[in-house]
Simulated scan of single mutants.
Amino acid sequence: MDVSARADYAVRALLVLAEDAEDGPVHPAEQLARRAGVPAKFLEAILADLRRAGFVTSQRGSGGGYRLARDPADIPLGAVLRAVDGPLAEVRGIRPHETSYSGAAEHLATVWVAARAALREVLDETTLADVLRGELPEHVRAMAAAPDAWRGR
């Protein structure tokens, strides 16, 4: 899995907004970029995608900026990645379940579908609130704690 810069920046910006969600301040894009540690120009386009997906709202004017449109517990990471990058997993530009092989690779499509399912198991079941609190789902913590989870391959 390769998490794009867009996806990483989107999640980091949303985490800043989630951190302040209770008092609901509006964050100008430049301030949000600075707090999230992401390039401001790059973040502008990402925020437009997040607004279209219904994760943030924007307010124009001198006091304008962005805020979360939903509770952080209702925003799974997988949905954020899809909003900025499209499907979680593709093979040659098509979805894993649409692949078809013959001969020696006949069962490869099943592997690609399983890989997508593993991504979904982590990303669709982990929310912004989980990450912010550091209270990740048990199965995610177990996967990350596995002895070979950090092995560089």
Rank of each mutant, 00 (worst) to 15 (best):
P39A: 09
R67T: 09
D8V: 05
P25H: 06
L32G: 04
G134R: 08
R151P: 00
I46C: 01
V56P: 10
Q31T: 14
S102R: 11
A105S: 03
I46S: 01
R70F: 09
A21I: 03
S4D: 03
V3G: 00
Y101R: 08
I46N: 03
R95I: 03
A29S: 15
A146H: 15
A40G: 06
H107E: 13
R67Y: 04
Y101T: 05
A48R: 14
V3A: 05
R34E: 11
A109W: 00
A118N: 04
P137N: 12
A109Q: 13
V16Y: 03
A33L: 08
E121T: 13
R92F: 10
E135L: 14
E138L: 12
R120Y: 03
M143I: 06
R67S: 14
H139F: 13
L81M: 10
S58H: 06
G152Y: 07
V122T: 15
W112M: 09
D23N: 09
F55A: 09
A7R: 00
E125G: 09
A109E: 09
V131P: 02
V140M: 11
P72N: 11
A18S: 09
L47A: 10
L50N: 04
M1F: 03
V122M: 13
I94R: 14
A79P: 02
L50A: 05
L88E: 07
L47K: 07
V91Q: 01
A21C: 10
E125Y: 10
G61C: 01
A53F: 03
L119S: 00
T126H: 11
A144F: 06
G24I: 06
D124M: 05
R34D: 06
V38F: 08
T127Y: 10
W112L: 12
V140W: 11
H107C: 04
G103C: 12
A83D: 10
W112N: 08
A144R: 09
A104C: 05
R67N: 06
D71N: 15
A33Y: 07
P137K: 10
T126W: 13
R151L: 12
